[in-house]
Computed example of a mutant assay.
Amino acid sequence: MVRRRQKSVHSADTACPCGRGIPLGECCGVFLAGRSAPTAEQLMRSRYTAFAVGDAAYLLRTWHPSTRPATLDLDPDTRWTGLEILHTTGGGFLHTEGTVEFRAHSSHRGVPDSMHEHSRFVRENGEWFYLDADGGR
């Protein structure tokens, strides 16, 4: 089962939540619409954007089948407020593995929070997938 957040306030013309400073429709929106992310970092940014806009289906679709949960419930009271990419290894056009260290900022019912994580990605048949992560708050 996939549950979506209430209707998003983001449109193709608003700034992409991933923080690159370009419109959603020209940035992560193309990946949410079906194009494959060419790098692990771009997949990470698009997954963050999917959390921000409430697209649980995209999150499940880009999660590696070996670690993907059967369902994903997004908390409608969480607002994602910023993404910092801290470090990447591999994850490029010629790689099959990569990591992205990031800090994601959010607020839950108005209380600011952040999470710091090292995510692992794998590329199979030309598609990048989120595999797993270590990290915490």
Rank of each mutant, 00 (worst) to 15 (best):
P38M: 02
L32W: 01
H118A: 10
Q42K: 06
G98L: 02
S106A: 08
G29P: 07
A56Y: 10
D77F: 11
H105K: 04
T78I: 15
V111R: 15
E97T: 13
G82V: 04
L32M: 03
A70G: 08
D73L: 05
A56N: 04
T49L: 01
P76M: 13
P69Y: 03
S106F: 12
D77M: 10
E41V: 09
R79M: 01
T88G: 01
R103F: 02
E26V: 02
T88K: 00
L60I: 03
P23R: 10
T78D: 01
H64I: 10
D77L: 12
R45L: 05
G54S: 12
R61S: 15
E84I: 00
W63N: 13
G90H: 07
F93V: 12
L74V: 07
T67Q: 02
T78Y: 06
P112G: 01
T99H: 13
A52S: 12
G110M: 00
F51M: 08
G98I: 03
L94C: 06
L94A: 14
S66V: 07
T49G: 02
R61V: 01
R45G: 01
V111L: 11
G54K: 09
I85S: 03
S46N: 11
R109N: 14
L83S: 05
V100F: 04
F93G: 11
H108L: 13
E41K: 03
I85V: 08
G29D: 13
L59F: 08
L83M: 03
D113M: 14
T67Y: 04
F31M: 08
T99D: 13
M115F: 05
L74T: 06
A52T: 01
Y48W: 11
Q42M: 14
H108W: 11
T89C: 10
L83I: 02
D73R: 01
R45F: 07
L32N: 05
A50S: 05
R45K: 03
A104D: 12
L32D: 13
S106Q: 03
P112K: 00
